[in-house]
Design a protein around this nucleic acid. Structure first.
Length: 1165
RNA sequence: GCCCAGUUGGCGGAAUUGGUAGACGCGCUGGUCUCAAACACCAGUGAGAAAUCGUGCCGGUUCGACUCCGGCACUGGGUACCA
């Protein structure tokens, strides 16, 4: 009886399921081990062929760890929310839940067939309410948290409010409690880790949704390849940027593949440099429509109105005071300050009365110039600025906060009060000011990454030419090489610095640049565009005039949206300057032969020249010195920038977790007459917020997301819930925790469970998730850890990437028509051409004929295509081809149109021709079948190319154990490789051979006699190899080693229990069904799953002699065996006496003899 | 462009800290069995007639290099004007 894999595999799969063999306990005396596979999305196409590869590897490891005495958690579940099910729903009207369920059932069936040791009791599905309840719960925690830059941790938002209340942290306006609910809500949104803001998003009209950066590839959506455009939308986002530095530094502590870590590092994109201000240069070219700088506060009304008002003349008052501003613009500001004082708002007058003449114990000035701004009130001793704002307008907010940040940057604290607070509660305001005056001066603002403020388009007011442009640079050493400054087209100063005569050109350019889609922008990166504004800035050290340009090579979203261009030492600046003929200055001595005609010298090495105080320094030192001087002179500050952006968290789609937010309408206010709306999170006790039923899975007529169709989807029947749903990665950002405690109804995971399981010990999955899932899950883990909810800061200790699986396409070329007579290089001679004069038939050539034909054409310089009218490439279904040989009859009937029934197949070697169902030789005699070869090409696996390999088919034909072994045998796990089933028969044979070791004439034939030394040696050699292979994740070599072991034992005719029993155990992780069957036949009543993995006993491996390769000058010539007890000297002497040695010496005397014990003998002649 | 990984027979791939290059398997060739084929089993299989030459290419270190060093080419993946 041959091994019947169908029966055996079914039997053991049923046994495992019935006995719950792989159930993991949350309490155990055994050490724990957590093996996790990346979540599959259950697509309609069934299990992707790339999936089993990783699953088999992790399963082998899980089973191995069980044999090694670990309590193993090895779960599986489904990332079941997502676009494909929804697209299908839109097309068919079928509820995505139904599709999802069907798909999951199919996945499960496929997974079960491969014999995985998953603990199915812990299965999770992200689309189940009992799962997404906790995804929503975590969102609420994010909403209710802020990032404290001092503790460098997320904290409850209550702690922030507390600090606002007690004045230990400034939020802008004086007293927290005097603020309206709306004002408080708005301020808090600037700090919450889940926040709503107007953001530039990647909008995909075809998908009707917003995509994350990593879902966009080359300007089109990753899924479907639809165009993507930039659009400003009000969106929920997660403040992942707060974690940028920790996400980066903690990478060092985890054992992940270097390529993933590198991809994350690049994605986070930390760059250290400095900010630097370039003051606008006064000049006749300037556009001086607004002659005065703006006050910090702008009185009532909209932003634009305020600007107008500020121009109006104001009363002169107060004193000249200290020069707190840039000296050059001091005079100018002073004038404006005087003007401002003429027109004080009512609130400002009230406050002035309360604070003037040292009434609060400190000297307070009003309308005092600071830096480029004018402060409403200022206490110079305490470096405290007091601002009285109108009601904060949405658009103005970022802007004011930007200035707050800048002033704080140079050491000022700013507190803000609303006009209404001053008018209605002046005592409270005064209290707040006193508190602030008496509070110790806080530490300076640190890294820009932790500020919750959006900080874009930095620069001071520029309307009188006295403002500045702030740039970010990592190369402050090249400051003396600056020859222009470039602003991003979206930069807020563009309009202001443009002179009247350049206005038209700049406006046209900006409009063009903004409308250019992302895709176009990416498509012609090389195309250099830009325009001169007509204005200049002053060089901060030389005072020289530097032109301001606008160019779309500068990104509005990075740094300050402005760069100092150093064409000689930056490739992009070089290209820009060359294109527009702008001058270039060399400031770093390049190597002698450097060709500046074509290239800038970007290297961070060399000595500084033409650079004043930096001359002679090495780049590294020059950077340090430049930063020091810039800081000293107050021109800028050392800064760190991150490329990482906050993660957009809303999708305008149906099939996802509802965001547990509703919009509360506040009572109407006097000023506006209508009620403000604030976002609030759903009460935790009301979770889950269920996904409502809708009539269609499409947006509403007004363009609202599908959830808006559910008219009853309202909080308490009156307030709208958020209509967008969470992105696909929400559920997968914490699923590793849920597996630990999958059915907990009270918590997302219990403390006991997470304290026991901690985090994943081994995580296996594709590298395509490097900057998506793998970054977000790290972010959520850190966040949950900050709140003290879990004990770990990383989700997975070790991560291995399985390689991508590519398909192997089988290709053929069909030739039709015949243009020329056969030349000397033709694929056929005329005698071989059977149909001369007959009807034209399509011709197929075996690959070897075509290859040599093309080769001949190449040599002769002919065009191989010239002899036929038409050549068609055909992808043949790979099932019709075996080892590159086509089954012609099946191929002909494969084509439903019957187009190939008349075709002629010129077979391998051109000896034989097939047509009309027969093979003929050159003389038209009917002959036996011969081979027809196809071309093989590695392509993406896709239905379109007819090269998809279905794991089910493989299991059906060869069995699960064979599939498992073969997949591992293919090559290293992490290497991308084409999926080719040609070699599977070797593995199949191996399984039969292994079976035969235990059997004779269909009966189990295992002897209880003691094993011989050679048998033990084979076994223990194998044990040793297998252990080191598994632990080094080298699964392909372990399969080879099993083969070697079985071959050797077969050779030894070994059937000893002492050998075969341990052998069954060591192979059990790889071929579990077969191992279980053998185990039970050997007389065991229990599963092999928890048997003890055998130890390797070195004593069986000890050799007494070694067959030394004897080489001459490193080339091996012959072998000779020596006892290991011999010394090097003994061997040296003895090897010279050998006849063969003398032969190779050819009479010469050896210069040197090297003997490496147990390795080699090398004779140098 | 930049970053990462890789390049070994006809093919997938082995090769411990520098020490017998090509393990294991596929394919191929020949043989046994069979009326025949398939299966199975046995033998051979890097190239070359041979001397020899051979791990993408050029150079270096070493008694000895697939392995280490310098330079280059190509393939695959990531990223895309990140200042």
């Amino acid at each position: 009886m041959e091994y019947n894999f169908r029966e055996v595999e079914k039997k053991w799969q049923e046994y495992w399921a019935k006995n719950k063999t792989f159930r993991a306990e949350n309490k155990s005396s055994k050490p724990k081990y957590y093996v996790l596979d990346m979540f599959p999305y259950p697509s309609g196409a069934g299990l992707h062929v790339g999936h089993p590869l990783g699953y088999i590897a992790s399963d082998i490891f899980a089973r191995y760890k069980r044999l090694k005495g670990f309590n193993v958690l090895h779960p599986m579940g489904y990332d079941s929310f997502g676009l494909p099910a929804e697209q299908y729903a839109i097309q068919t009207g079928q509820h995505p839940e139904i599709t999802t369920k069907t798909n999951i059932a199919r996945y499960r069936e496929q997974l079960d067939k491969i014999g995985f040791s998953f603990d199915w009791e812990r299965e999770v599905r992200t689309s189940n309410p009992d799962y997404y309840k906790w995804t929503q719960w975590i969102f609420i925690q994010l909403f209710n948290s802020w990032y404290n830059p001092e503790t460098n941790k997320a904290e409850r938002i209550e702690l922030l409010i507390q600090r606002f209340r007690n004045g230990s942290l400034s939020f802008g306006a004086g007293s927290w409690d005097s603020l309206s609910e709306k004002e408080q809500s708005d301020i808090l949104l600037n700090y919450r880790l889940a926040y709503l803001s107007e953001t530039m998003v990647n909008w995909c009209p075809q998908l009707g949704t917003v995509l994350a950066n990593e879902e966009v590839k080359d300007g089109v959506s990753e899924r479907g390849g639809y165009p993507v455009e930039r659009k400003l939308m009000n969106q929920w986002s997660l403040r992942i940027t707060a974690y940028a530095d920790r996400l980066l530094t903690d990478l060092d502590g985890i054992d992940w593949t270097e390529s993933i870590k590198e991809a994350q590092r690049n994605w986070i994109g930390k760059s250290e440099g400095t900010s630097l201000k370039f003051h606008l240069s006064p000049g006749k070219e300037q556009n001086s429509q607004s002659p005065h700088p703006l006050p910090l506060s702008k009185g009532e009304g909209s932003a634009s109105q305020k600007k107008e008002e500020s121009i109006a003349a104001k009363e002169i008052g107060g004193e000249p005071g200290y020069i707190t501003s840039n000296k050059k613009i001091w005079g100018n500001l002073k004038e404006n300050a005087r003007a401002n004082r003429k027109e004080q708002t009512e609130a400002e007058e009230i406050l002035w009365d309360k604070v003037r003449d040292n009434k609060l114990g400190f000297k307070i000035r009003r309308q005092h110039p600071v830096d480029q701004f004018i402060a409403d009130f200022i206490c110079l001793d305490k470096k405290l600025i007091i601002e009285v704002d109108g009601s904060i307008h949405e658009y103005q907010k970022d802007y004011d906060e930007g200035r707050t940040f800048m002033l704080e940057d140079i050491g000022y604290r700013i507190i803000r009060f609303s006009n209404s607070s001053v008018k209605n509660n002046i005592d409270f305001v005064c209290n707040g000011i006193t508190k602030a005056l008496n509070a110790p001066i806080e530490q300076e603002h640190t890294s820009g990454s932790v500020t919750p403020l959006l900080w874009r388009g930095a620069g001071g007011e520029a309307n009188d030419g006295k403002g500045f442009i702030e740039v970010f640079t990592t190369r402050p050493d090249t400051i003396f090489g600056v020859s222009f400054v470039t602003l991003a087209p979206e930069h807020e100063l563009v309009e202001k610095v443009t002179t009247a005569e350049n206005k038209k050109a700049v406006e046209e350019y900006v409009t063009m640049a903004k409308n250019r889609s992302e895709r176009e922008r990416q498509a012609d990166v090389k195309k250099i565009t830009g325009v001169f504004t007509g204005s200049y800035v002053e060089h901060p050290f030389t005072g020289k005039q530097i032109p301001i340009w606008v160019g779309d090579y500068v990104l509005a979203g990075y740094g300050t949206g402005a760069v100092m261009a150093v064409p000689m030492h930056d490739t992009r600046d070089f290209a820009f300057a060359s294109h527009f003929g702008i001058e270039k200055h060399m400031v770093i001595q390049p190597p002698v032969d450097w060709d500046f005609a074509m290239n800038s010298y970007d290297e961070k090495s060399g000595k500084l020249i033409n650079s004043d105080f930096l001359n002679g320094l090495e780049v590294k030192d020059a950077v340090k010195k430049a930063i020091a001087v810039i800081e000293e002179r107050g021109l800028g500050k050392g800064k760190t920038n991150f490329r990482l952006r906050d993660a957009i968290f809303g999708r305008q789609r149906y099939w996802g977790e509802p965001i547990p937010v509703y919009y509360k309408h506040l009572s109407p206010t006097l000023s506006t007459g209508e009620g403000d709306v604030i976002p609030c999170v759903v009460d935790e006790k009301d979770l889950p917020l269920l996904l409502p039923e809708v009539d269609k899975y499409l947006p509403t007529e007004t363009g609202e997301p599908p959830l808006a169709r559910a008219t009853s989807f309202k909080k308490d029947g009156k307030w709208d819930y958020e209509f967008s749903t969470m992105p696909g990665w929400a559920g997968s950002s914490w699923y590793f925790l849920r597996y630990m405690d999958a059915h907990n109804e009270k918590e997302f995971v219990s403390k006991e469970a997470v304290d026991y399981w901690q985090n994943v010990d081994l995580y296996i999955g594709g590298a395509e998730h490097a900057t998506g899932h793998l970054l977000y899950v790290r972010f959520w883990t850190k966040f949950l850890n900050d709140l003290g909810l879990i004990p770990v800061i990383e989700p997975a200790k070790k991560l291995i990437n399985q390689g991508m699986i590519q398909g192997v396409s089988e290709k053929m070329y069909m030739f039709q028509g015949r243009r020329n007579s056969w030349g000397p290089n033709s694929p056929l001679t005329d005698t071989q051409f059977i149909f001369k004069g007959g009807e034209p038939r399509p011709i197929f050539f075996s690959a070897d004929i075509l290859n040599s034909y093309i080769e001949r054409c190449k040599k002769a310089g002919d065009d191989p295509k010239s002899i036929f009218d038409e050549i068609t490439s055909i992808n043949v279904d790979i099932r019709l081809v075996k080892n590159g040989k086509l089954n012609i009859a099946e191929f002909i009937s494969w084509n439903k149109t019957g187009e190939w029934t008349k075709a002629v197949f010129i077979c391998s070697g051109s000896e034989t021709v097939y047509y009309d169902g027969q093979w003929y030789d050159q003389n038209n005699n009917i002959v036996n079948a011969s081979d027809f070869n196809t071309f093989q090409e590695v392509e993406k696996m896709s239905k379109r190319w007819h090269n998809v390999v279905n794991p089910d088919d493989m299991v059906e034909q060869h069995g699960a154990d064979c599939l498992r072994l073969y997949e591992m045998f293919l090559g290293p796990l992490e290497l991308s490789k084409p999926w080719n089933t040609n070699g599977i028969t070797g593995v199949s044979n191996f399984i039969r051979k292994l079976w035969r070791l235990y059997h004779k004439d269909d009966e189990l034939n295992v002897s209880n006699e003691p094993a011989t030394k050679p048998e033990l040696k084979v076994l223990h050699k194998t044990i040793k190899k297998i252990i080191s292979d598994i632990e080094g994740f080298s699964f392909n070599t372990s399969v080879s080693n099993f083969m070697i072991c079985v071959n050797e034992l077969t050779e030894l005719k070994c059937n000893k229990r002492e050998i075969l029993e341990p052998l069954a155990i060591i192979i059990a992780p790889y071929a579990p069904h077969l191992a279980e069957e053998l185990w039970s036949k050997l007389g065991h009543n229990d599963t092999i799953t928890f048997a003890a993995f055998p130890e390797c006993k070195e004593e069986y491996l000890v050799e007494s002699a070694f067959n030394y390769p004897v080489s001459f000058n490193g080339k091996t010539r012959f072998f000779h065996e020596y006892e290991l007890s011999l010394t090097k000297e003994d061997i040296e002497k003895q090897v010279l006496t050998l006849e063969q040695t003398q032969k190779y010496l050819e009479g010469k005397t050896p210069k040197k003899i090297i003997v490496v014990h147990n390795k080699i003998v090398n004779i140098v002649v």
